[in-house]
């Protein structure tokens, strides 16, 4: 391994299982915040949750677009073996540490194959289950609240446009430090 590359998973099978279960729980219960146990040492600006999610889900079959710089791209290519693409529209997973591409620039899948859509992993400053967005839809008994610090301006309108595409659409995984939450395309979002 090159000296500039930090380590990946300590125990690939168990680390990936734990992270997947957190992402599955997050996607099944939109707005519930999950914590990732000790993650890999990823180069900045890649945080522990975003890095762990990518190592858990990305591989040679999933083109990844990211804005995290060459070091993070090299780390990901080495540990996940995924192709890195230049256009967000070609990505299975898009990782945004800064301002994300507009949702309509990502692949939404087709009416017949809506599963062939991108998942946006958006790194934000902070996530908590109080105040902020009001979420309703599948996976939510009544309403979940999710506070997201550092979401891009105009995101709620962009998300409403995405939701209107159903069954096509982008699914979102929000990451902040070791925390993550998800919004599948079915989630209705109102600003709190």
């Amino acid at each position: 391994m090159s000296a500039t590359l930090t380590a990946g998973f300590a125990d690939p099978a168990l680390d990936a299982q734990r992270c997947f279960r957190a992402v599955l729980e997050a996607m099944a219960r939109p707005g519930r915040v999950q914590r990732i146990a000790a993650g890999p040492e990823a180069p900045p600006p890649l945080g522990p949750a975003a890095a762990t999610v990518l190592l858990t889900l990305a591989d040679a079959d999933t083109p990844v677009w990211l804005d995290a710089g060459p070091q993070a791209a090299a780390w990901l290519r080495f540990h996940a073996g995924c192709p890195i693409v230049a256009a967000p529209g070609e990505a299975g997973f898009a990782l945004a540490c800064g301002a994300p591409p507009p949702l309509h620039d990502l692949a939404p899948g087709s009416e017949e194959e809506p599963q062939r859509s991108a998942t946006l992993i958006l790194q934000v400053a902070f996530l908590a289950e109080e105040g902020g967005w009001r979420l309703t839809g599948p996976g939510i008994e009544h309403e979940h609240r999710l506070r997201v610090d550092g979401a891009p301006p105009g995101f709620a309108a962009d998300w409403a446009g995405n939701r209107a595409l159903f069954p096509r659409g982008i699914d979102l995984i929000l990451c902040a430090g070791d925390r993550l939450a998800a919004l599948p395309r079915t989630t209705r979002l109102e600003i709190g």
Partner: peptide
């Protein structure tokens, strides 16, 4: 194997995001 699990896990996440599909 881990490749197979990842493939199934990705399918599961999309399945949850598109209920009943």
């Amino acid at each position: 194997d881990e490749n197979t699990k990842r493939m199934i896990r990705r399918a599961l996440l999309k399945a949850v995001a598109i209920p009943g599909h």
